[in-house]
Every structure is written in C-alpha cells, then in structure tokens.
C-alpha cells in the first residue's frame, strides 16, 4: 500500500444491490457525519428524506425504496472516496460498475451531487415505464461457467432476444439480463450444468440490454439536461476501455451506461496492462473485490478495512 511512483491506483465504484445498513455499519463517527451531510444535501434537492429512511426503512416502498437504497449506496462509496483522499490515497484512474459510474464521475468532479440524483431519477422513471408492459424483467448472476457456456445455454434453452449478457465480470462470473422467467430458466440450467452458484439479482429492470430501449427516453432526457465538466481524474470506459477526460467523453460514457453490455473483465485487464496494481474498492463490503479477478500477481485489491489496518484503527 506504499506510495511509490511505480504503483498506480484505480478506484472502483460499485453498482447497486448492497445492503445499506451493513454497508454503513463499518463507518467511524467522522465518516458517519460526512455520510449524513451528503444525505441531507441530497434530501434537500431530491424530495426524498434519506435521513428518515435510515432510521425507518419501512417508510418507503416500491420505486421510492429502490431510489433511496441506490442513492445511499452511492453516497457510501463517496464517503469511502473522501476518506481515501483525506489519507492521501489518490487514484490515477477511476471506474464505475454500472450505476457506480454516476458516483465515480461525481467524485472526479465531472458532475454535481444533484446531477447524480437526476441521473438516478431518469433510471427510476425508465423502470416505471418498463413495468407498464406485459413482461417483467430481472437480472441474474452465474458463477462457475464461462461466457461461451452461458451463451450456449441461452441459445439452447431460451433466446438471445429474451436473455442477454449484461457483463462478463470475470472468466467465471457472468451477469445476465432479460425477461424474468427466461433469466430464471437460464439460471436453473446453468446450475444443473455445473455452475457453482446462480442468483437472481432482484433488479426490476433489464439493465444493460436493448430490451429497455422503448423506455430509455427518460434516462436520456435527464442526461441531456446535465452539464458534464472535464474529469479531474481519468475515467476508464467499461465499454471500450478508452481513457475519458473531457466532459463530452464522460457524457458519451454515461449515455452508453444503460443499454450496453459491460466489459468489466476486459477493463480490469486493461488497467493492469497500463500499470495499475492497486485496486481500491469504494464499497465497504468488498463487493467489487469479490466480483473482480486480478490476473497480474503484482496486483492487489484494497478495501476500507485495509485502510483501517494501515491507520491502526
């Protein structure tokens, strides 16, 4: 964890789906204060009382609950980012997994906090629109089978029109997206063919697939109203692995971050190739460390626990 010149760091921001109570349970009092400051700021301009939600998680239901959970997950990552910067751990690059891009580019100075809420609001409105149709959607994860095998299962037992690859997280961790019962069917077949684990992600939407195209206008409209500044920290695209700095480049990445399949494995390999050997997980539960495989023996993942240990907390 030393700060020598040859070590390059990438900060990795999580997507959604973490348990928020568990997520913030590791924070010390200073971090809790910072986290609550962010919550209050967001509550002011979003109309969603996040502080109230933290004390009573039954106070919201449906998409309001999803909205609150997703915002809070992002604010937790921003708190970890703030802690790292305060301790002179500064990234050379940042990447965001799925909706984690919003928090990554907020931390890099490309957008304002209010914009992250605006983007999420567009996502939520697109979800609501997609739920008006006759089909229900979800996502699932398959651990233990490679991409080719998963594609074969999809083609054999479902259809690439109903189930698509949302992300190749690593060689043996594939995320699929699509029509709910078709995703379930593929997971069942994957399990019987030797997957070590399969799980529905309980996401009410077929993110990262063009199945969302008919309701994506809310997402795109909200992005159009945001001004993207140049990023103070280079962002690496999880779609084509280009290094993004200008506001226009970040804007284009944000546009892709809804219907396109993520290339997480390729992005991690690219970062290692350009010399990144310290990967800092901005989640507090190690979710990015768990779902990412590093191939360079000199590379390591670091978490907030690593930071606490180094500070003897």
């Amino acid at each position: 964890m030393g700060q020598t010149d040859c070590q390059k760091k990438a900060f990795v921001f999580q997507g959604v789906g973490s348990n928020i109570e568990k997520t913030i349970s590791v924070f010390d009092s200073a971090q809790i204060n910072y986290f609550h400051e962010l919550c209050e700021a967001v509550s002011d301009f979003s109309g969603i009382n996040l502080t109230k939600y933290l004390y009573d998680m039954s106070c919201f239901e449906g998409t309001d609950k999803i909205f609150a959970e997703w915002i809070l997950t992002g604010l937790s990552d921003c708190t970890v980012f703030h802690t790292c910067i305060q301790n002179d751990i500064v990234p050379d690059y940042i990447i965001g997994y799925s909706l984690g891009l919003n928090n990554a580019i907020y931390c890099s100075g490309s957008i304002h906090l209010e914009d992250t809420v605006h983007i999420l609001s567009g996502v939520i409105r697109s979800i609501i629109e997609s739920q008006k149709g006759r089909l229900t959607y979800d996502m699932g994860v398959i651990v233990g089978l490679d991409m080719q095998t998963v594609k074969e299962i999809i083609n054999l037992y479902s259809s690439c029109k109903h189930v698509m690859i949302a992300s190749e997280n690593s060689e043996y961790c594939i995320v699929i997206t699509g029509v709910c019962n078709e995703v379930q069917k593929v997971l069942g077949k994957a399990q019987s063919q030797g997957a070590l684990k399969t799980r529905m992600l309980d996401v009410p939407c077929a993110f990262h697939s063009n199945m969302l195209i008919d309701c994506a206008s809310y997402y795109y409209n909200n992005i159009e109203n945001i001004h993207f500044n140049d990023s103070k920290i280079p962002v690496v695209s999880i779609y084509d692995q280009k290094i993004l700095i200008t506001g226009n480049e970040i804007y284009n990445e944000q546009r892709r971050n809804f219907l396109s399949s993520m290339k997480w494995k390729t992005t991690i390999e690219y970062l290692e190739k350009i010399g990144v050997n310290e990967f800092w997980d901005m989640s507090t539960n190690g979710s990015m460390k768990k779902s990412t495989v590093l191939t360079n023996p000199d590379s390591s993942f670091y978490t907030i626990k690593t930071l606490y240990k180094s500070l003897n907390v």
Binding site: V143, Q193, G194, L196
Partner: peptide, 25 residues
C-alpha cells in the same frame, strides 16, 4: 463462490490436477 473458484484454480495449478470447474459445481 468466487473465492472457492480462485482456490480451486490455485490448487489445480499447484498440484497439476485434471479437473473441470463444472465438475466441482
């Protein structure tokens, strides 16, 4: 389970084992 996969890959390599991940699954 991703950790188990990593462990399987490490053990396979160390002891030169002939093993498919799907078999373990």
């Amino acid at each position: 389970s991703l950790m188990v996969i990593e462990l399987i890959e490490t053990v396979k390599k160390k002891y030169d084992l002939d093993l498919k991940l799907q078999t373990v699954g």
